[in-house]
């Protein structure tokens, strides 16, 4: 699956393990949360990078205790209109200090890339050909003036550092 990260398409270092499929406890796999919860002891003595896939509706509290074990969290966007992952992403970054890869998977479309970036996503699995074509031209449509600071956007000095952000 094409993976867009840091402004270009990159080789995906990770393998996604579908629900219900067996796997050997190697690293760089993205597993469903239920799998992780059931099989985690297999990783007790291992330090391989693990990714977890979080379906919308799963509360952060359900996996927060294991956050330090995850090098990657994939948040599922079942429909592009489903905005739950935006809050989850911000909370992971801002409140829980998650520093690993935050990947958007599912229906990820071109016009949602900018708000997702602003909520702390940094990687995007792209399935929509129009989105892929647009991203390949280096184009992320959006706006350049914001009334809210986004994740990792340091407030700028000025009249209203708490509210306004100009430039990308």
């Amino acid at each position: 699956m094409p993976l867009y990260k840091n402004g270009s398409f990159v080789q995906d270092q990770w393998t996604t393990i579908p629900e219900g499929e067996a796997m050997s406890p190697a690293g760089h796999v993205i597993v469903p949360l239920t799998w992780w919860q059931a099989e985690r002891q297999a990783f007790d003595d291992s330090h391989v990078p693990i990714g977890v896939r979080i379906d919308p509706g799963i509360a952060i509290d359900d996996f927060i205790a294991d956050l330090s074990r995850f090098a990657l969290i994939a948040l599922v966007i079942p429909k592009f209109q489903d905005g739950r992952a935006y809050s989850t992403a911000r909370l992971l970054r801002e409140r829980h200090g998650f520093k690993g890869e935050l990947r958007a998977v599912g229906e990820v479309l071109i016009d949602q890339i900018q708000p997702m970036l602003r909520c702390g996503f940094d990687a995007f699995e792209i399935t929509d050909p129009v989105t892929q074509a647009a991203l390949e031209t280096g184009r992320v449509p959006g706006v350049t003036h914001f009334y809210q600071p986004g994740v990792n956007e340091a407030p700028k000095a000025g009249a209203r550092p708490w509210l306004r952000q100009a430039g990308r």
């Binding site: 905005g83 935006y86 708000p115 909520c119 914001f146 009334y147 809210q148 509210l163």
Partner: peptide, 12 residues
Amino acid sequence: QWSSIHPEFTYL
């Protein structure tokens, strides 16, 4: 102003 194109709250 705060709610205009709020990145977290655009797909409620």
